[in-house]
Structure formats: C-alpha cells, structure tokens
Amino acid sequence: MTTKRFALIAGLAVTLVLSGCMTPSRTVQRTSADTQTDLSGRWNDTDARLVAEEMIDDMLNRPWLQRFSSDQQREPVVIVGAIRNRSSEHIDTSMFVKDIERELINSGMVRFVATSEERAQIRDERMDQQTQASEETISRLGEETGADFMLQGSISSNVDAVEGERAVFYQVDMELISIETNEKVWIGSKEIKKIIEQRRARF
C-alpha cells in the first residue's frame, strides 16, 4: 500500500513537473490599442493617450480658437516647440504630441507646420530641388507658412515612496504662445496619480 501511495505521489509530481515544462514561457495576446494596461507602474501608452485626449478636448473648446478665427478669418497655424521631460522617467514626449497634432489637424480647426528639426530636412530637399527638379515641379523658395502660435510644455513627476509602495504624481503642462506677441492664449494641464505596490515575497 505504501509503495502504491509513493508511486502515485511520484507519478503526480512527475506529471506536474512535465506539464510545467510544456507550458510556453511566453504568450502573446493581441489586444485593442486603447486597452488600459498598467504593468510596471511607469508612464505608458495609456497615460500618453489620456493626456492627448484631455489636451485636445480642452484646446479646441477654449475661446482663443474662436477669437483668432473671427479676427483673422482663417485657422490658426501652430508649431510644436519643446516639450521638456522634467520627470524621473525617460518619457518619449513625441508619442502624445503626435496624437495631439494629428487630432487637431484632423479637426480642421487648426493647421500645423513642421518643427525646426523636420524643417531642416525639408529645406535641404527644397534646396536640392532648385538644381535637380524640373521647372514645373519645383517647390519655390520663401513660400513657407509662418506659424501663429507655438505649443510648449513639460512633464514633471513627483515620487513619494516607502519600501514596497510608491505614489507617483505626473503633471503635464502645455501652453500655446503667440509668436508675434508672446501672449499665452491657452494653458492646459493634466494630472495623473498612480499608487504602485510591490510585494516583499512570492513563492
């Protein structure tokens, strides 16, 4: 009886070990891009999306846009300036800035011009066209669209932590500044707070 019981336990143990070995160590599951995912507690795509949504909504519903359109009888032209990362994480700010840019352009209410880095490449190409492109297709010099406003901002974070638990507070501030008058016509702010807990032990 004892031998049988031992054999049974040993058999179960072997099965468990083998079934453990057969499970793939990594699985991939496709999910929709707007699914909220919080794995490490760090800044992620969900945060970038929330910031972009809030900023777009806020920017398009403030009086600066209406005022400019009625004064100038055209859509304002915006350029993206520096979005500084003042947080304690390496954050790719271009992710949500591109979201903001795209949504604003698609709204048809705001026009964007290329950033200074993008412009350098385009100007090189335009200069090249002056000698290489045909007369009919050449892009003319001195025809760039000047921006009316510059979008600037920063992401800052504050961390309060004890062993195994930390609270991270992010604040994203963005400002739209008139290039001609230095007037700040819109200020948007989005705050995100996360509590991250980490267990001291696992099996």
Binding site: G164, Q198, R200, A201, R202
Partner: peptide
C-alpha cells in the same frame, strides 16, 4: 533590481 525587491520564498 526593482523586480528582485520581491523575494522568492523558495529561494530564501
């Protein structure tokens, strides 16, 4: 280092 803050009981 961050991950290993959580210690494995079996390893301990």
């Amino acid at each position: 280092i961050e991950d290993y803050f959580t210690q494995s009981i079996s390893q301990t």
